[in-house]
Structure formats: C-alpha cells, structure tokens
Design a protein around this nucleic acid. Sequence first.
DNA 1: CGTCGCCAGATTGGATCCGATTTAAGTCCA
DNA 2: TGGACTTAAATCGGATCCAATCTGGCGACG
Lengths: 223, 223
Amino acid sequence: MPDEASAPGREPMTQVVARSLRDAIHSGELEPGARVRQETVAAELGVSRIPVREALRQLESEGLVVIVPNSGAKVAVLDFEEYAEIYKMRERLEPLAFGESVGRLTDEQKDDITRLLAELEAETGNAQAYLEADRRFHLACYAGVATPRLLKMIVDFWNTTQRYRRILIATFSPDDYELNNFEHRLIAEAALNGSVRRGEDLIRMHIERSRFRLAHHRDLFNR
Amino acid sequence: MPDEASAPGREPMTQVVARSLRDAIHSGELEPGARVRQETVAAELGVSRIPVREALRQLESEGLVVIVPNSGAKVAVLDFEEYAEIYKMRERLEPLAFGESVGRLTDEQKDDITRLLAELEAETGNAQAYLEADRRFHLACYAGVATPRLLKMIVDFWNTTQRYRRILIATFSPDDYELNNFEHRLIAEAALNGSVRRGEDLIRMHIERSRFRLAHHRDLFNR
DNA sequence: CGTCGCCAGATTGGATCCGATTTAAGTCCA
DNA sequence: TGGACTTAAATCGGATCCAATCTGGCGACG
C-alpha cells in the first residue's frame, strides 16, 4: 500500500464531514444564513446522512451552525451584539493564552512567530491572504498552551467570526494595516522576549481596538 | 389536552438523551473515567443508539465526555493541570459575565440572588446541598447576560468540574465555609448595588482563591 | 515462565429504510 | 384580488440491520 496516512485504524467519517463543513464555512463557500441540507452534504462526500448529522451536532456546539429541530441546519448568523460579545471574550481569554504559552515556546515555535510576522507584513493590503496570515500569526503565539481546552475555545472564536472579519478587512485603509502591523510587531517582540505582562496588555488592547472599530461598521451586520 | 409543555412540536430525543447524561454526570452517578456504552444508554431510555451517538458528540464538545474512535465514550477525567486551567478561564470569563449581567438584572432576578444567598448560607456544612446552592447562586448573578454563548461556556465549566468540586468541598473546614459565605455576601451586594468593577474583582478573587486552595489537594486527582 | 499471535464475543461506525414534521405550492372562497 | 385552507413534495428524526474494529482470553512458541 502507498502510505495510508500513518493510520491508527481509519478516521471516522464524522470527523471528515465536520472538517469539510468547517472549511466550507471558513472559506466563505457557505455563507452565514446558508441552509445546510444533510442529503446534499452526504451526497457530496459520498456518505450517508448519519455522519453528517453527528458532524452538524459538533459544529453546533462550536457555534458554527444553528440547528432547528425538524427544520434543518443553517450556518450561524451573528448580529452586532453577538460579534462584539465574542470579541469581549477574546479580550479575556487570549491574554490568558498568551501568558500560558510564552514560557513554554520551543525554539521552532519562536521561529514560526518570526516567520509568520514577516509573512503577515508581506501580505499588507492583500485582504484575503492577510486574513489568513493574521489568524496563523495569532495562533502561533499561543502554540505553547499545554491544555487543549483553552486553545480549542480560541480557535472556535476565530472560526465563527472568520466570515465577518473578511467583510471588515475590506474596509481597511493603509493606515489600518500599518497600525495592525505595528501592534503585531510589539506582540511578537513580547512573545520572543518572554514579556508576559506586556504581551497580555498588548493583546487585550489589540482585540479591544478591533472591537471599537467595529462600532463604525454596524451596518455590515444589517440583513 | 392537559398542557403538553407548550410544545412547538416534539423535542428531539437527542436533547433528552444529552440532558439525561449530563444529569447523570452532574449528580455523580457516572464518575469520571466511567465507560458510557451506547447500547446501555439507549436501552435505559428506550431509544435506539442513533440519538445516543449524537448526544455523545454534543457532550464531547461540552467537555463532559471523551470519545475514542471505535472504542467508546468515557466520562472526561480531569488532571490537576486541566482543572486549574478551567479555573483560570473562569477567572477571566465570569467577571466579564458579571459585568454584562448586572446592569440588565430584573427585579425578579435580583430577588433570586437574595433568596439563593440565604439558601446557600442555610446549607452551610451540608456539602451536597451547599454545592448545588453555590452553583445556582453564582449562575443567578449572571442571569442578566443577554448573549447565550458566554453563559453556555460558563455553565459548561461548572458542569465539567462539578464532580471534582464535590470531592473538594468534603475537605472544607467551618472556616472555609465561613469565608465562602462572606465572599458571597459581598458579591451579592455588588450585584444588587450595581457595583460592576467591585463585583468583577470579587469574583475573580473568589475563583482565584478556590484555585489556590486546590494546590493543597493535588492528591485528590491521583488515580 | 513470559510473550507473542490468534480467535471469538462485544461494541462501535455506517447504510438503508420508514414514519413524522415542516415547507411550499395550489386551490377554493369571500 | 387576496387570504386561508388543503394537499403533496421535500426534508428531518429515529429504528433496524450489517460490516468493521476493538477487547479479552486462550494456546503455541521461544
């Protein structure tokens, strides 16, 4: 056999379906409010509806979809208040993650941060690529977090808001990009130097600033 | 018809199963590490395994059980570090919830806080009842939170740690109870007065203190 | 005597099928 | 012409059935 993915047995279909749907929502292929039919997804991936239903339950717990009994699943729609609330939670949890991570970063992980910072700056002005680099940079700062719960929570936050960040970043001026880059440099510096307290403050402010800017774009949530 | 629970159609079995399992874990009937067999649960509730499997996926996302592919589900076991990490998250999120809640509390909800505080003090020394009252008192303080995400997250935290708090409370001295009651009174006061900042600090310290005491009981996690 | 491999029972994962509920179109009547 | 009722198609929830995988015990071999 060729390689077989170093498989410890086969991976359950539910996980494959869940990942596939996550990617589809993440990439914008499935927009907020879009209906997700079990039969359609099942046919598309060549499985029955059973693993699709289990995957949908999982995604619902992650906040990515909303299931209405006997009616169906839809990609979760966030209104302005929900979006802001997620940012408020991020303002509390991401500094914690930073603090838990910094002391445990390996040399490779530190290199990743440096590299991703450079990538991020290189993509300035390129909305789609910048968005992706932004995500990876921030998550790289939390790579040292030892317990999976906190990390999963933060990733879920990024996933549920991804689609909306995409809309927001389209409104970025060159100055917005520049300020972002500046803050990222400071954060990376704090991470590499082990300046826990300073990094925590920087991250909180970084997210807080994003949330404040949000208030100027409330209209993006009207539909 | 009598009342029919104001039903908008029937409630899906998955939710019934999930709630039942949550309760069983919550009450200690299912201990951490206990294996959860789909067939057993299904038979017990008179349903097939399908809704059981979906419920298990849901509980996994909530952190209550761990599913090993092709092997089965077990009630989640927390080691000392995971438990401490959850408390650290609570230290960040519950003050936020308090702040979001206080300004929006209705008169009924304020009465609930007063009443539950009294109940809590009345159960001093009675571990089992105190545990339950403690939970309800704290959650009552967050009753004004408008967005469900934050609240669900906090409830999940309380659920996953419930079994361990039960063990810890058994080690409480009269002084421990007294100190707890004192802090609860201050928190209730802040909630009723609308002292947001003070309440946030109190709650953070309240949880922090619980976490510190935990360090003296590391042995409870050995198994 | 301990370890590795093999076989049977138990348990999970997935597919297909059926009944129940929702949704939407179409019709009737004011 | 517009709204409410009826009916039919689409879709979901759940049950039963079958295949794949894991667990535990037995025996053979080193």
